[in-house]
Design a protein around this nucleic acid. Structure first.
Length: 583
RNA sequence: GCCAGCGUAGCUCAGUGGCAGAGCAGCUGUUUCGUAAACAGCAGGCCGUCGGUUCAAAUCCGACCGCUGGCUCCA
């Protein structure tokens, strides 16, 4: 769902109607495709949250002109107001009917014996289908085909690539129009677009999927990093700096060489092989192992903003949200088994506090539970999963348990947030790891003098800082809270003769640690205000004759609010208060 | 990696086989202005790259690179 549509959430009845309309629209689409491309092989066509799709195996690509033609045929069917008619058949009857439709036959094969097999028809078109339609095609009302994409049959990349046609349908033209308008609005918040417009970062094909952060983007980036450092001081983390490149010996020991090498940058030099780090954990394990630890020292919390490189397959990268070089607000907590639960709780509380500060309200939390082929005892998994679940409920957070999705070395919690177009990205994460300490033979000395194995927690609030920034840019539509804004205040001299005073104002603000600049172009004030608005700068400080005489500036807020002339000291105080309050 | 689409000035885009274009941004000049776009001029291009077809290619064909949407992947 679009974030902007979260207010005025549709009723369950309307959602059900839309589901049936969209499912029906998928039938109309299949009907139309068969008319235009009779050789088409049909597969499945379900409704989605925002519309529907239908997957076809086609002898030729679908063109944009096809989409228009298909839409036209679908509209004819809607106008004809044909009834949807269901009919129960035997497997043999259905198989006979779909003799030349191999995918439908495969679907039939998989229907367990005894289960009802139903066909639904409108006009001359019939589809194998469980049902859930509107009564007549006329009720489909408003449709729009959106795009064509490739999709593997049954989602398996070894299967043939099908052509998926995406569309949407609504109960009325006005609801459809509203949706399309929201979509357009959401596209304006695309971080890749805003990144260029606001001068935050650029990309260059010479380093694919690798952002170059411009000064303003770097200010934003560093604001997040400094925020994390602030928390670390209060939460007992110790920041460390670790190498970028390690001999592959290390990656063999950590297991990355066996499981992750495809995603690593490997360098051969001096007849030795090195790997650029895709993660920090092995380095932290080495550091922990380099010193003797008493049970009294634990937990040890190593935080690392080190740059990571992962070779992501071409075709999966995406703006800032899926890149090949990034840093995380990464930390590894080495603790005693009896400390695990407290550490989890503290982290979850810290993350919750942070997401609330950033007004990330629609966060989906997934708890990935024990997979097949795991290490450790059942008792250990029981305890670990329970500790994770308790820490979430203790913080009043709802989560979704996902059986079988945990790592082989431990369960994990993922925090997912949607971008402007509703695509979810994993941001924060917390993983329990019982494997790393084994592989690196880590220990601490217990009270009784025995050597004990610590437990490791991998954790990040932001996850990849790049990805977090991408989602955050879209979340705020570029209008960042003052503490994050790359430019917190822009001084706007009315005429050239006010430039010197404007520069004094800027210098005074900068001296107070405020990110301020002057727009000294020979432009009219209106144009400067407009540009500052478009840059979503929180404070516009107008400096003219009256202000210069009074040691003041006229304060205009990004919201358009005009606070009138205020003494410079007051303005400084107001901005700094915003920074402290996180507003 | 796979399917499809796209790639023209810093940005947004027009240009479908015959001299490379517009708006915005930039620069220069004029204007010195009170809360969302002053006026004029100038400059800006290997039309992603390489190859092919053609008398002639931004335009047609192929390969590669990059980006976009989706699929797969995401220790």
């Amino acid at each position: 769902m679009l974030q902007s549509s979260n207010k005025n959430r549709p009723s369950p009845e309307l959602l059900d109607l839309r589901r049936r309309i969209r499912h029906s629209a998928a039938h109309l689409l299949a009907d139309a495709v068969l008319e235009v491309i009779p050789a088409a092989k049909l597969t499945i066509g379900p409704p989605t949250d925002d519309g529907f799709y239908y997957d076809f195996d086609l002898p030729r690509p679908v063109t944009p002109e096809d989409l228009e033609r298909l839409e036209g045929i679908m509209r004819q069917r809607i106008k004809a107001d044909l009834p949807f008619v269901g009919k129960e058949v035997t497997k043999e009857e259905a198989a006979h009917m779909y003799a030349d439709q191999r995918y439908k036959l495969e679907i039939l094969e998989d229907i367990p014996p005894g289960e009802k097999i139903t066909l639904y028809s409108h006009g001359k078109f019939t589809d194998l289908c469980r049902g859930g339609h509107v009564d007549r095609t006329g009720q489909v009302s408003a449709i729009k085909l959106l795009n064509v994409a490739g999709a593997y049959w049954r989602g398996d990349e070894h299967n043939p690539m099908l052509q998926r046609i995406y569309g949407t349908a609504f109960e009325s033209q006005s609801a459809l129009n509203q949706y399309l308008k929201n979509l357009e609005e959401a596209q304006k918040r695309d971080h890749r677009k805003l990144g260029i417009e606001m001068g935050l970062f650029v990309f260059n094909p010479i380093a694919p999927a690798s952002p170059f952060f411009l000064p303003k983007g770097t200010a934003l980036y560093n604001a997040l990093v400094e925020y994390a450092r602030g928390l670390y001081k209060r939460y007992g983390y110790s920041e460390v700096i670790t190498p970028q490149i390690f001999e592959t010996e290390l990656w063999k020991r950590s297991g990355h060489y066996q499981h992750y090498i495809e995603n690593m940058y490997v360098i051969n030099i001096d007849e030795r092989e090195y790997g650029v780090k895709p993660m920090n954990c092995p380095a932290h394990a080495l550091m922990f192992g380099a010193q003797a630890h008493s049970y009294r020292d634990l937990p040890v919390r190593f935080a690392d903003f080190g740059r990571l490189h992962r070779y992501e397959r071409s075709g999966v990268t995406h703006g800032l949200t899926r890149v090949r070089t990034f840093a995380q607000d990464d930390a590894h907590i080495f603790c005693r088994p009896d400390q695990v639960e407290q550490e989890i709780r503290t982290f979850v509380a810290m993350l919750d506090q942070t997401y609330k500060l950033l007004r990330f309200e629609d966060v989906r939390i997934r708890l990935s539970l024990r997979p097949e082929g795991r290490i450790g005892t059942e008792e250990m998994w029981d305890r670990a999963e329970k500790a994770l679940a308790n820490s979430l409920t203790g913080q009043g957070l709802e989560f979704e348990p996902v059986p079988g999705e945990g790592a082989f070395y431990g369960p994990k919690i993922d925090f997912l947030v949607a971008d402007a177009l509703g695509r979810e990205w994993q941001l924060g994460t917390l993983q329990l790891d019982y494997n790393l300490p084994e592989r690196f033979d880590l220990d601490y000395t217990a009270e009784d003098g025995s050597k004990q194995r610590p437990v490791v927690l991998h954790r990040a609030m932001f996850g990849s800082i790049e990805r977090f920034l991408g989602v955050m840019i879209e979340h705020f539509g570029g209008a960042f809270p003052v503490w994050l804004a790359p430019v917190q205040a822009r001084v706007v001299p009315i005429a050239d003769r006010h430039s010197a005073y404007a520069e004094q104002v800027r210098d005074a603000l900068q001296a107070a640690g405020i990110r301020a600049e002057v727009d000294s172009r020979s432009e009219r004030m209106q144009a400067k205000i407009r540009d500052a608005q478009l840059q979503k700068i929180p404070y516009m400080l107008v400096a003219g004759d009256r202000e210069a005489a009074a040691g003041a500036v006229a304060v205009r807020m990004r919201s358009g609010e005009d606070k009138g002339a205020m003494p410079l000291d007051k303005v400084k105080e107001m901005i700094l208060k915003d920074v402290v309050d996180g507003t």
